[in-house]
Amino acid sequence: MKLLLVEDNPQMRATLQRALERQGMAVVTCDDGLQALALWRSTRPDAVLLDLSLPGQDGLEVLAQARAAGLRTPVIILTARGTVGDRILGLNTGADDYLAKPFDLDELEARVRALVRRAGSSSVAEPVAPPAPVGGLYVDTGSGAVYHHNQPMELAPRELALLRALLARPGQAITKEKLFELVFPGESDVQYEAIEVVVYRLRKKLADTGVQLVTLRGLGYLLKAPA
């Protein structure tokens, strides 16, 4: 069984690697969110152990990109963010299980084996087809960048996170609460209204594409392709 362990704390990473390897598992490690997705693709693990507070890119963003790219590898989130809201956010983003630090190593091993069994013990599931483009807008599954008719869009990180979330569910409204969680993961000091600022800026950048970022009162936001 091959695992990808994404953890930036050197001591925690080394401890987990030793413990899991003693149980006969092959463990590939990564300490940076920006490198995690590429390593995920190249190593084809049976399961991913993913910390959330990572340098370079938050673990939830890594997970969202992986799921949008069709990677269905079982994922256990390992994090010190142990509130109910954090667990719900992680599971809604695509995690299969959640362990709050500190945790028991035997329990971690048992959960890993149970997840892999449920997934059929395959190295990686066959990727699902990416969502259809919306008015020529699509996410490049390799880089995570958004393109409009093969031209990359120049977007700030939060604008990119918002647009990717909307493109992952074409034709479906996403609530403001859900978008806030995806655009500002773990940022408790950010005002809730900040998502409206990101929406406003993204609308301006979408103006030349013909794609509309529509507000549906009481439901959230969705992308609408030009008629």
Rank of each mutant, 00 (worst) to 15 (best):
L222T: 09
N92P: 01
A95I: 07
D208L: 13
L213D: 03
W40S: 00
G218A: 12
R158D: 13
D32P: 00
V199E: 10
L163S: 00
P55H: 12
L49C: 05
Y192L: 11
R164D: 02
P133S: 08
A165T: 11
A132R: 11
E154A: 15
T15M: 14
G90K: 01
D96P: 02
R13Y: 05
D51L: 06
E7H: 05
L179M: 12
I88K: 04
A110P: 02
R87W: 08
R203V: 03
A14N: 07
L49D: 00
D51Y: 06
G210I: 07
P10L: 05
L108G: 06
R81N: 06
L5T: 02
T15N: 08
H149Y: 12
V128C: 06
A64D: 10
G24L: 10
L166R: 03
Q172R: 14
A110I: 07
R18V: 14
A14D: 12
T29F: 06
G186E: 08
L182F: 04
T93R: 05
V190L: 10
T141S: 13
V190Q: 13
T83F: 05
L50A: 01
P55I: 10
P10C: 11
M153H: 11
T175Q: 13
V112Y: 01
N150A: 14
L52V: 09
V124H: 03
E159M: 06
L52K: 01
R72M: 12
R164W: 04
A38M: 10
G56W: 08
Y98L: 03
A26S: 14
G144H: 05
R201N: 13
V6K: 00
A38Q: 14
V183M: 08
N150M: 05
R169Q: 13
Q65T: 04
V183L: 07
T175K: 11
P170C: 14
S53Y: 03
E21Y: 09
L216A: 13
V75T: 03
M25P: 00
A19K: 06
K101F: 07
V134W: 01
E177L: 11
R158V: 04
M25N: 01
G33M: 07
A173C: 14
A14R: 14
K204V: 09
F103S: 04
